[in-house]
Simulated assay, not measured.
Amino acid sequence: MRPIVVTVGAEISAAPQRLWDLLTDWENQGEWMREASDFEVLSPQRSGIGVTVATTVRIGGIATRDRIRIDVWQPPDRSGSSHLGIVHLGWIKGRGDIRLTELPNARTRLDWTEQLQPPLGLAGAAGMRLFAPLFACTFRRDLALLGALAERA
């Protein structure tokens, strides 16, 4: 079954390192990712490939405990770009990729793609396709909150 793909992006008035620090501040992600709560780092390490985090995710009135594992860890460097890749290991499987690209004037382009495998066969696929616009709306709101948080510092 094909994954549901949701892609959102934004330009944020903050340096890539500031955004990276917020993206990888696991326990405080709920400040900008309002559909998620109760973040818990499960792995012994807190940075790099292999970090595992559990969180409760609630979208469209449905709540589930999601576990993610970091599989790409490329913090900002001199090239001005970075990439954080995650694998969803919970009820909904798939992956997420967040890429940061440095722009002039201390701005950053953030592009976020989620590729989600629906649970429950055809019924789950139909339901997730109906929810895809809600996912996109939720993720755009998340980016607005992340941008506001990043710009405050």
Results as ranks from 00 to 15, higher is better:
E40Q: 10
R67S: 02
G94D: 08
P44G: 07
D25Y: 04
L103Y: 11
F135A: 08
R46K: 05
E151V: 00
M1S: 10
V72K: 15
T7V: 15
T7S: 15
I4M: 11
F139R: 05
R58K: 10
I4V: 15
R129D: 01
R152A: 13
G60Y: 10
S37M: 00
I70F: 15
A150S: 01
Q115F: 06
Q74R: 01
R109W: 04
V57R: 03
T101R: 14
R67C: 06
L116N: 11
E151I: 00
V5A: 09
D21R: 06
A126K: 10
A136S: 05
H88I: 01
A132I: 11
D66C: 00
G124R: 09
Q29Y: 03
I98Y: 15
G124A: 06
L22T: 07
T64C: 13
A36M: 02
G94C: 06
G96F: 07
V87I: 13
N105H: 13
I49C: 06
A10T: 06
A106Q: 13
S79P: 07
I86G: 12
S81K: 14
E31W: 04
L89T: 00
Q115G: 06
R69P: 12
L42P: 03
W32Y: 08
I68T: 09
L100E: 14
G127T: 13
L116P: 10
G50E: 07
I92D: 10
W91I: 05
P44W: 04
F39Q: 08
D25H: 03
G50L: 08
R109D: 12
G124I: 00
N105W: 05
R109N: 10
G60E: 11
Q117I: 04
D97G: 14
I86C: 12
L100A: 09
A63S: 14
E31Q: 09
D111H: 08
A153F: 06
S13K: 04
L23G: 01
G147Q: 01
L22S: 12
P16K: 03
W20V: 08
I86V: 11
S43I: 03
P76D: 09
L134E: 12
R2V: 02
R67V: 14
G48M: 01
G48W: 00
D111Y: 00
S43Y: 00
P3N: 07
G96C: 07
